[in-house]
């Protein structure tokens, strides 16, 4: 069971003029297995840096990140990433995109196709398996991105504002699709967003960051009932939580 621990980590970037900018400042945090954790904060607060550190694309200057008591040494198949711009392989069909992680694991063609077909079905992409990404709408592209990341059944799913470029309706539908798959496979999900309602709807725990350099401002447990349905968005509890979080974040934007 995956558990991720941030132990007092800091990360500084050097910009083009040689000036250091601290993106993350002394963050300590424990992320629970099998839960959805949303990281919320004003833009430029180091949210994406957190995802890049977790993915192993970059490393902290100070402190350590552990996954199951092991240092994160680089990208790994147990931690897949869903990108804001999807990063779909434009030269591969929908089906080939979904199969890619399985192919890397040397799973044979028949088995791969079977799993890919299953995910195509699950994400409402039936009939589009042989299309190329440029033939799809934004919402469908992000479904392919999700299906591709989930087809390998990762223990940890890292999501970097995956729905932020979608329209309201598509975003809500994809949030619900994500929860549906989550209840089935129960991966740990770390979901970065700047959308408060998205965070409340999805998260068990919301971590709010301060403006740059990113520090933890507060950690909020969301005790809305599970499984969550779209009606929850209209509940009094949801509304109160939104007010509370908005107030907290507002202090950072001013």
């Amino acid at each position: 069971m995956s558990k991720i621990t941030f132990d007092n980590i800091s990360k500084t970037f050097i910009n083009r003029n040689g000036q250091p900018t601290r993106a993350i400042d002394k963050v300590s945090l424990e992320i629970e297995p099998e839960k959805i954790t949303c990281v919320l904060g004003p833009s430029g607060c180091g949210k994406t840096t957190l995802i890049n550190l977790l993915a192993g694309y970059t490393f902290p200057d100070e402190g350590h990140i552990f996954n199951d008591n092991q240092y994160i040494k680089g990208p790994g198949i147990e931690r897949t990433v869903v990108f804001q711009d999807q990063a779909l392989f434009l030269w591969k069909t929908v089906k080939e995109n979904i199969e890619f992680g399985l192919k890397c694991q040397k799973i044979n063609k028949t088995q791969r196709e079977k799993i890919a077909d299953e995910y195509i079905e699950k994400f409402g992409l039936s009939g589009f398996g042989n299309n190329y990404p440029h033939q799809l709408s934004g919402g469908m592209k992000q479904r392919v991105g999700l299906a591709r990341a989930l087809a390998t059944r990762p223990k940890v799913l890292l999501m970097d504002e995956p729905f932020s470029s979608l329209d309201e309706q598509n975003r809500e539908i994809l949030q619900e699709d994500l929860l549906r798959i989550y209840y089935e496979a129960k991966p740990m999900i770390i979901f970065v967003t700047h959308n408060i309602e998205e965070a409340i709807f999805l998260a068990h725990t919301i971590v709010i960051l301060t403006k740059r350099p990113g520090k933890i401002k507060s950690i909020i447990k969301v005790s809305l009932p599970s499984p969550r349905t779209s009606e929850i968005r209209n509940s009094a509890e949801f509304f109160q939580l939104r007010q509370h979080i908005w107030k907290t974040i507002r202090e950072e934007i001013k």
Partner: peptide, 13 residues
């Protein structure tokens, strides 16, 4: 683009 390589690496490439 770097993101293609990153996506592939996180899928076990």
């Amino acid at each position: 683009e770097e993101n293609y390589k990153r996506a592939a690496l996180s899928l076990g490439a």
